[in-house]
Design a protein around this nucleic acid. Structure first.
Lengths: 185, 185
DNA sequence: ACATATCTAGACCGAATGGTCTAGTCGTGA
DNA sequence: TCACGACTAGACCATTCGGTCTAGATATGT
């Protein structure tokens, strides 16, 4: 257990990418296996519950990535608005890099059906984390707690919509519009 | 060809509903057939290309529904803001009616994979229609054309996000927040 | 050198997938 | 009454789905 074996990581990373682009049901296990160059046995060794376990892991992995981008965006920011603006532009760049098609990693992966309680719970949890992190960053940059909360709320709400609209239009422009929509021109 | 046979309509309506809740890949043809009480032969008679044709029809059907709700919302409105607010509340009610889970009918149905050009084109077209209709309504209620355009843009962007957040949180609250986010408290 | 636990490899499985096809039913106009 | 088009009915098909299983490779500790 010195360091995590690369196979598991490859599996998770490939799954995260594919789910983000095609949705949970849009990706077959075989496709993930091929993309990660992993044998089937390894999948079910690392994830006894198979695809759904892998999706959960992939979502959490992608959530961490996003959190890291958020942190980086606020690192050199002078104000909350600066941080959020940088964050949106970083996401826009990533979106373009992924052929103008990747969706929100969480909703793409975990929006399966109303009945899957576990997926819903994890989704809520991750969004809660994102919200808290954003709020904390905003406060650290001098925003009032109450204002920071509203700001985080507006960011994630608007960003979700912008993400969708970016896919619709095939352009990262909507994502870049987010700060303007939140803070006004 | 006096009036459309009910089978086709049932097929489309059932498909629209199911795709909205589970996504294109999340629904099987068999499930749609069962829900609409239609035999398989009818599906492939009315939609020679099968599932994908049906999805296109379902998306356009749902888009028309949405447009009708928009029209109704603006009917008795005094201002553009009024119309948009009513519209959001109507959608929120519908969302709650659908077990707090239905998504945007278009993106749920037509976000399939990067390669399906036809789906993407239709998606863009429908959103364009929604945008134009909203803009026209706003102008009819006295908004400046330029302002009306920005308003329509903000509405659909924010609404998309709110829709997603509503599913995440299992509450229609985010959808109800949209007017406040667009216009300020 | 050996024992043990971890991981890989892929053949294999039943179920479900979307789609095809042929036989037949039904309603309508000649 | 018959003929013809629209539509229904469901058996049937190849393929793919997610998942299981066993045999073996590989690494680690003794």
């Amino acid at each position: 257990m010195s360091n995590l074996p690369p196979t598991r990581d490859r599996l998770v990373a490939a799954a995260a990418l594919l789910f983000q682009r095609k949705g949970y049901h849009g990706v077959g296990v075989a496709e993930i296996l091929e993309a990660s160059e992993a044998p089937k046995g390894s999948l079910y060794h690392h994830f006894p519950n198979g695809k759904s376990d892998l999706a959960l892991a992939a979502a959490h992995f992608a959530a961490q990535e996003t959190l890291r981008i958020l942190d980086a965006s606020f690192e050199d920011a002078n104000t909350a608005r600066d941080g959020i603006t940088t964050f949106c532009y970083k996401l826009a760049k990533l979106f373009t890099l992924h052929d103008n098609w990747s969706g929100c990693p969480i909703s793409s992966t975990l929006f399966e059906s109303p009945s899957n309680q576990e997926f819903r719970l994890n989704t809520r949890e991750i969004f809660q984390e994102w919200h808290e992190a954003t709020k904390a960053h905003a406060i650290a940059k001098g925003a009032e707690p109450e204002n920071a909360d509203a700001m985080a709320n507006a960011l994630w709400m608007t960003l979700q919509g912008a993400w969708t609209m970016s896919r619709v239009r095939g352009t990262s422009d909507p994502i870049k519009q987010v700060p303007m929509l939140i803070f006004g021109s």
